[in-house]
C-alpha cells in the first residue's frame, strides 16, 4: 500500500534520513521505532508532504506522491497525527471534528446554497457525534479544544483523524504521556481501525504498546532502517538492541 524507496533528507550538514526503504502492507498495523533522533518523525513529514525529500520516492497505492503538497496527500487518503498535539485551540471539539469530515466548505457553496449546506452540515454533525461517542468525548462537544485535558485532547486528535476517513493513518506517538487506562483504550481504538480496513503506521517509544498491537515493526537508527520484522523478531535483533543501548 505504501512504499518508500531511497528516501533521503538532510538539514544543513545533518543527515536526518538516509536512503530509507520500507513497505507497508494494506490492513496491517506497523510500528516505527528507534532512539530519539533516528529520523522517524522526519520520515512522517516526508511521507505526508510537509518536507520535501532530497532524494527518493514515496509511492502510495501505485501513485507517486513524492513531491505533492500536504493537503493533496491528505485528500488522497493519508491522515496523520502529530507528536505535539495540533488541535485548533480556539475552536470547539465539534468544530475540530467537522473540519476533518470531507465536506464542501468552499466560499461559494457557503455563500449560496443555504439548504444544501444545512443538510450536509446536519449529516456531518451526526457523523462527528458518532465518532465522539466512540472515543467517549461526546459530552464535551461544545468545549473549546484548548480547555480539554491532555488525555481528552489525545482522544480528540484520534477521533479527528478517524473523521478524515483516510485509508492510511500515520500516528506520531499516539500513546505518549497517557495513563494506563487511556493507553488500553487507545490500543483498542487502533485495533478497531484495522478491523475497519485501515492501514496504520505508528511511531512509538512505548515498547510494550508496540509489541502488543503491531503486526510488523520497522526499526530505525541514524536515519536508516536497520531492521524489519515481527515484534518478536525485532525484540531479538542485535542491531536494534545496540541502537537503543549502545551509541
Amino acid at each position: 500500500m505504501l512504499k518508500v524507496v531511497g528516501l533521503s533528507k538532510s538539514f544543513g550538514g545533518v543527515k536526518a534520513v538516509q536512503n530509507c526503504k520500507f513497505e507497508i502492507e494494506r490492513g496491517s498495523i506497523v510500528g516505527l521505532i528507534g532512539p530519539n533522533g533516528a529520523g522517524k518523525t522526519t520520515v512522517f513529514n516526508l511521507i505526508t508532504g510537509f518536507l520535501k525529500p532530497d532524494r527518493g520516492n514515496i509511492i502510495y497505492r501505485r501513485k507517486n506522491i513524492t513531491n505533492m503538497p500536504p493537503h493533496k496527500i491528505a485528500q488522497l487518503g493519508i491522515g496523520r497525527t502529530f507528536q505535539i498535539i495540533r488541535l485548533f485551540p480556539q475552536l470547539t471539539v465539534l468544530e475540530n471534528m467537522l473540519l476533518a469530515i470531507p465536506s464542501n466548505d468552499s466560499l461559494f457553496t457557503s455563500a449560496l446554497q443555504f439548504r444544501v449546506v444545512a443538510k450536509e452540515q446536519k449529516e456531518n454533525i451526526e457523523k462527528a457525534m458518532e465518532l465522539l461517542k466512540f472515543v467517549g468525548l461526546d459530552i464535551k462537544v461544545n468545549a473549546l479544544a484548548q480547555n480539554l485535558s491532555y488525555g481528552q485532547q489525545k482522544l480528540l486528535e484520534i477521533a479527528r483523524v478517524l473523521a478524515l476517513d483516510a485509508d492510511l493513518l500515520l500516528l506520531d506517538e499516539p500513546a505518549s504521556g497517557v495513563n494506563l487506562t487511556l493507553l488500553k483504550k487507545i490500543a483498542g481504538l487502533i485495533k478497531n481501525m484495522r478491523k475497519s480496513g485501515k492501514t496504520i503506521l505508528l511511531i512509538e517509544h512505548n515498547m510494550d504498546f508496540v509489541m502488543k498491537i503491531c503486526d510488523k515493526v520497522i526499526a530505525m537508527d541514524h536515519g536508516k532502517e536497520i531492521a524489519y520484522g515481527t515484534p518478536k523478531q525485532i525484540q531479538k535483533n542485535k542491531l536494534v538492541l545496540d541502537a537503543y543501548l549502545g551509541g
Binding site: 491528505a74 485528500q75 480556539q90 466548505d105 466560499l107 455563500a111 452540515q121
Partner: peptide
C-alpha cells in the same frame, strides 16, 4: 457575518489557529 459562521469561515479560523494541522486535514491553505 455569514462568511465567518459558514463552513468556509470555520476552515479559515482553523487555518488561523494552526495552519499545519489544517493542511494535514486536506485544506488548501
Amino acid at each position: 457575518s455569514k462568511i465567518v459562521n459558514s463552513p468556509f469561515g470555520r476552515t479559515m479560523r482553523a487555518i488561523r489557529d494552526d495552519e499545519i494541522a489544517a493542511k494535514a486535514l486536506g485544506k488548501n491553505v
